[in-house]
Design a protein around this nucleic acid. Structure first.
Length: 605
RNA sequence: GCCGGGAUAGCUCAGCUGGUAGAGCAACGCAUUCGUAAUGCGUGGGUCGUGAGUUCAAUUCUCAUUCCCGGCUCCA
């Protein structure tokens, strides 16, 4: 069956209605909210507690409704009629009240089940195809935490069973790439509750990847004229009060610390917290962001326009109090290291500097073959009180971002309410294997913090001027970026990132010593090499190396000893395969590493 | 934080309706010395997440709690 995107959406939307109809058949009296189509399926929200055990029966009922090929009929009703129709459905009545007066009200009917709905739908249930219910989750009514929580049932629908089966297979394959699973299997990182929720322990193999990424960035920083700095993990609470972090985002921060000299043990913890908050008592804050430290570095010496742009970079570790239910793997954590930098520049330099930042983000994505991202321009929500500064500064910053993104010539989308509290931003957003969106690289323009900190430089007119501040982090954070990179490569990292680049497999134990000597000679050429010294047949060693995603293995047996070679096999780079001496191989491998070649068959290679 | 589900060996899991635990892989030992994805035999390893309660008896039932998972909300 041919079906365009419109029809897909309509069919899945109809599947949501069928879901609601099936639920009502099995659970009469359940209150319904709404059920739209999503990018890959559909859901419906109910005011009833379902468990996973209910899904098969509901799915069976849905299949009966689909098999019956019931017509789906639209009719227009007036408000009174609608109120009558949904008199026992309180959520429907609220949704009805959302429809502005004068707008048409439509009801879709399907085998005696009426739903308030704008449509569109397919003509009859038989046109929905193959359906599958996937999961149950909670969802707040109208998406607001202040409202009652409903139960959401997720499902998906495809024109044919075959397409559905393929989709479910893809979901299973995606789970194999989940960075939490691969992180454990490949010994990259761990999260230990004894250390703390959302606090990542980087294992030796993961640390290699992290450090290679840092080296990559550091080289680009040198090229773009950045200077690296180091700032402390805590700072005076006053500093963050001045920046605005403390009052504006204190819910997302670890509580302030009272130092020994300021501690009054006769007060309760609550009283101390109150005095810290009001400023009566001084204390320290574990830094939620690096900007104040970099700002203090900028203002630590007088600046001339000749010194600008001043580009300060730091792999800065920050800590944020994410709610417990939001934590997961490496993509959402409480302590993370940003590849952060702050560029202090003149108004005239702003456009060029933004371009420099965007170029860096794009270079990273290109190098890693990450073509599947979208660009978001995050604007402030003027109705919200969580932003600092005046409208004029915001307007200028927003205009600058729009202008520079337009020059890139790549599609972008503006989203209100996605700005940082001090300025608008350009974000690079990617999906994980499970389809969830994550913000990685970010470039933000800020007129507010320079004013709050009274930053200045001396202009050619010998008068003080306020610089513009760009905040930027091309990876976003090393934790999140690595997490997504693990999934992106499915554990098969390019050679330059691979924790172990080569494993030498001696065919018998008496060759282990010789293999170790070769390994050592290659390590001295800065290659990451290990020897598999298990007393096992070659097949077992090959298998272990493959399972552990070691990109290159070298078989080392009598033949190799006689010819002075290694027999190379690679799962990601066929060009490296064959029999050659360790020296020849080292040259080839080093070249692939230096060029940061992507794995064979990788899109973007 | 909220709704729902879960937690048994390092990993993946089994363990009807209560009678203090098993498998495969991994680890370790011995034998084997092998030619491109699993050599054989053996050994060790668990206060069944934690704490209470019910019971003669709890991995199993109840409650609390911690952590994990799926959603939601949030994400400077």
């Amino acid at each position: 069956m041919e079906r365009n995107e419109m029809d897909w959406t309509a069919a899945r939307h109809s599947a949501a209605h069928v879901l609601a109809a099936a639920v009502l058949r099995l659970f009469p009296g359940v209150k319904l909210d709404i059920g739209p189509a999503t990018a890959t399926g559909f859901y419906y929200d109910f005011d009833h507690t379902f468990t996973a055990a209910d899904l098969p029966a509901i799915e069976e009922e849905m299949k009966k409704i689909i098999a019956a090929d019931l017509p789906i009929v639209r009719r227009e009703v007036d408000r009174e009629e609608a109120r009558e129709l949904f008199s026992r459905q309180p959520y429907k009545l609220e949704r009805l009240a959302d429809i502005p007066g004068g707008e048409s009200i439509f009801v879709y009917s399907l085998g005696g089940f009426d739903d308030l709905c704008r449509g569109p739908h397919v003509a009859s249930t038989g046109r929905i195809g193959a359906v599958k219910l996937l999961s149950i989750g909670g969802a707040y009514f109208r998406g607001s935490e202040a409202n009652r929580q409903l139960q959401r049932i997720y499902g998906t629908a495809f024109p044919t069973e075959e397409e559905l089966r393929r989709h479910l297979e893809r979901l299973e394959e995606a789970k194999l790439r989940d960075h939490r699973r691969l992180g454990r299997e490949l010994r990259l990182f761990t999260i230990d509750p004894a250390v703390g929720l959302g606090l990542v322990l980087w294992l030796p193999r993961g640390t290699v990847i992290r450090q290679e990424l840092q080296k990559f960035i550091a080289a680009e920083l040198d090229r773009q004229g950045y200077e690296q700095v180091v700032t402390p993990h805590i700072a005076q609470l006053e500093l963050f009060r001045r920046s605005g972090h403390f009052p504006y985002y204190r819910d997302a921060q670890f509580e302030p610390i009272v130092d020994r000299e300021n501690l009054d043990r006769s007060l309760t913890y609550g009283e101390l917290a109150g005095e810290l908050e009001s400023g009566q008592r001084s204390g320290f804050l574990i830094k939620p962001m690096n900007c104040p430290g970099h700002i203090q570095i900028f203002s630590s010496s007088p600046r001339s326009y000749r010194d600008l742009p001043c580009r300060l970079a730091e792999f800065g570790t920050v800590y944020r109090w994410e709610q417990s239910g939001e934590l997961g793997g490496m993509t959402r954590v409480r302590g993370f290291t940003q590849d952060d930098a702050h560029v202090f520049c003149t108004e005239e330099q702003l456009g060029g500097e933004i371009q420099g930042c965007l170029a860096l983000v794009r270079k990273i994505f290109l190098t890693l073959g990450m073509g599947d991202y979208r660009v978001r321009i995050g604007l402030r929500d003027p109705a919200s009180g969580k932003y600092i500064g005046d409208g004029a500064a915001w307007a200028k910053a927003e205009a600058a971002l729009r202008r520079e993104v337009a020059k890139l010539g790549i599609p972008s989308r503006e989203e209100v309410g996605e700005a940082a509290f001090y300025g608008p931003k350009i974000d690079f957003v990617v999906n994980d294997v499970l389809g969830r969106e994550w913000q990685l690289g970010t470039v933000q323009v800020d007129y507010n913090l320079p004013a709050r900190f009274a930053l200045s430089y001396t202009g050619p007119d010998n008068r003080p001027h306020t610089p513009v501040l760009i905040h930027r982090a091309p990876f976003g954070s090393l934790e999140r970026f690595c997490g997504l990179l693990i999934e992106h490569f499915g554990g098969d990292f390019p050679l330059w990132l691979a924790p172990e680049q080569l494993r030498i497999l001696p065919i018998s134990d008496d060759l282990t010593e010789g293999a170790e000597a070769i390994a050592q000679s290659l390590r001295e050429k800065s290659l990451r090499v290990k020897v598999d010294g298990h007393s096992e047949p070659l097949g077992a060693k090959i298998r272990r190396a493959e399972v552990e995603r070691v990109p290159c293995v070298a078989v080392f047996g009598r033949r190799e000893v006689e010819t002075g070679t290694l027999s190379i096999r690679s799962r990601i780079c066929k060009a490296l395969e064959g029999s050659r001496t360790a020296e020849e191989f080292a040259i080839l491998l080093s070249r692939e590493i230096a060029q940061r070649t992507l794995p064979d068959g990788f899109p973007g290679r």
